[in-house]
Design a protein around this nucleic acid. Structure first.
Lengths: 174, 174
DNA sequence: CATGATGTAAAACGAACGTTTTACACCTTC
DNA sequence: GAAGGTGTAAAACGTTCGTTTTACATCATG
């Protein structure tokens, strides 16, 4: 396994579980099994490491959302939550912890959310057979709400959002 | 204005804008206009200050949600976002930044979310004229989703969630 | 006028922070 | 076999962290 990959994987887990600012470089080097010298050669700085983690997570997350129906969208989120657990949206959390003041992070988050929004919009349009911007926005909100509510309501929140989405979709079809 | 109130008000603003861990005690004392000695006499510790902020925010937030219809629930959220701005749910953010490892914080968050869930459930039941647990959970998810999506979609996300909630409610009525 | 509570200003605490540096080992590859 | 790239181990950098302490001012109440 590539050293950079090992670093990013370890960092993502620690950031997700304990928060960004609460995760020190010592813990990162130890978890990644490398010296701090090597860590800085690969990542540059903590902020850049955060951005790297976000970029990689975007790749992995968006790959899961390559689906054709709104129902499959929420099924994919159910899978994600089951496999990865749920500590909220790592992107928005990074923004909140840095106050939006770190350019490389703010940019990675903006890129992800734009892509995510486009994906939801595309899936809704494909599922419905026509563009439906307002409905797509409602589905996006259900998706975000499921991610957030799962933090204290458990994985069932995703199933609940899924059935709500089904109602909205069937309403739009008739 | 009471010193403790001034402290909590200043702390809430800083925590919300820059994050919990990123806000140092120096910035807090300066913003609250008091010495660190006084701050510690009133708050005890940073973790206890965070819990105080959360408890006070719960009081203020829940007071706004004393409404009788689901539509009014989202209208109240629109007001909240307009007045207070939107940096995500301060409760879940505190949990994420501490990894859930700080008892007083975890407890304040759990208490708030339990009260919030109960409130949503009550409003849905009053609006509909009967208990509807699954529908209440869907409305809760829309509420959380609006809060979260407003971070990058703007205040319009709340209006979108509001109309989605209206659809789900009218579907449940017929 | 003494007392005790409540406040400020500022220094100090040890620990942890993100980051850099020094010194050294192991490999390829020319 | 010298060179250069890539890695480790560990100390050190100066800064900032959350917290405590020291010294002093103010002011109501006995």
């Amino acid at each position: 396994m590539d050293l950079t990959t090992k670093l990013i994987t370890a960092a993502e887990k620690l950031f997700d579980r304990h928060g960004y600012m609460a995760t020190g470089m010592d813990r990162l080097t130890e978890a990644a099994g490398m010296s701090s010298r090597t860590l800085y050669k690969h990542a540059g700085s903590k902020a850049q490491l955060m951005a790297l983690v976000l970029t990689e997570r975007d790749r992995r997350f968006m790959a899961r959302l390559e689906v054709k129906s709104v129902d499959a969208l929420f099924a994919a989120l159910e899978d994600w939550v089951r496999v990865e657990g749920t500590h909220g949206c790592l992107f928005l959390r990074s923004l909140a912890e840095t106050g939006g003041d770190t350019p490389e992070i703010a940019q990675a988050v903006a890129a992800h959310k734009a892509a995510f929004r486009q994906r939801v919009s595309d899936v809704v349009a494909a599922d419905l057979g026509r563009e439906a911007p307002e409905l797509a926005e409602q589905i996006l909100i259900l998706f975000e709400g499921a991610t957030q509510a799962a933090l204290y309501r458990g994985a069932g929140a995703v199933s609940t959002a899924r059935s709500a989405a089904a109602i909205l979709m069937s309403g739009a079809r008739s």
